[in-house]
């Protein structure tokens, strides 16, 4: 039985890597089965189950969407870790923009802790100087 190399990866970890007899994946147009020497294919995935059939049995991996790339001798599945939806991404982008605008507008954030500490040390030195000079006068 010929085999095909399969990698299932998500951005935060590798989920499966090894040889398989065939793979079933939930492609956007419906479930597809891939055997060795499959023609090159690039497809998006729907959330669902990826089944990898090996000589030892069937390995089942859940993916929440992603991409599948098929080459005649290797299959790579990129699983999404994040929940993806256009409007959700949009609202996140808006949040990031808003934070940027707040930062630009907020004059008080000019001083982060380190620069505030530096300013404090300077003020303390000045105070010390003043009290020393006063001491001399008396």
């Amino acid at each position: 039985m010929p085999t095909i190399h399969v990698d299932v990866v998500s951005s935060e970890e590798s989920l499966y890597s090894g040889e398989a007899e065939c793979i079933f994946a939930p492609a956007s147009a419906g479930e597809i089965g891939i055997y060795p020497k499959h023609v090159a294919l690039l497809s998006t995935l729907k959330p669902g189950e990826v089944r990898v059939q090996t000589q030892q049995g069937v390995e089942s991996i859940y993916v929440s969407g992603g991409i599948i790339e098929v080459q005649p001798d290797v299959v790579t599945i990129f699983s999404d870790t994040a929940i993806r939806a256009n409007d959700l991404d949009e609202s996140k982008a808006l949040e990031a923009k808003q934070r940027a605008e707040e930062t630009m507008a907020d004059a008080s954030s000019k001083h982060d802790i380190s620069s505030t500490q530096a300013a404090l040390a300077e003020a303390m030195a000045q105070l010390q100087m003043i009290s020393k000079m006063r001491g001399k006068k008396h």
Partner: peptide
């Protein structure tokens, strides 16, 4: 970069030690 007066388009802070991809999506999308 704010103090240097650059044009900042998006900001992301307080990611912590174990960031997830979700947290980055908004800034990348901008």
């Amino acid at each position: 970069f704010k103090n240097l007066g650059f044009n900042i388009k998006s900001v992301l802070t307080n990611l912590g030690d174990s960031p997830h991809l979700d947290d980055l999506l908004g800034t990348i999308k901008v």
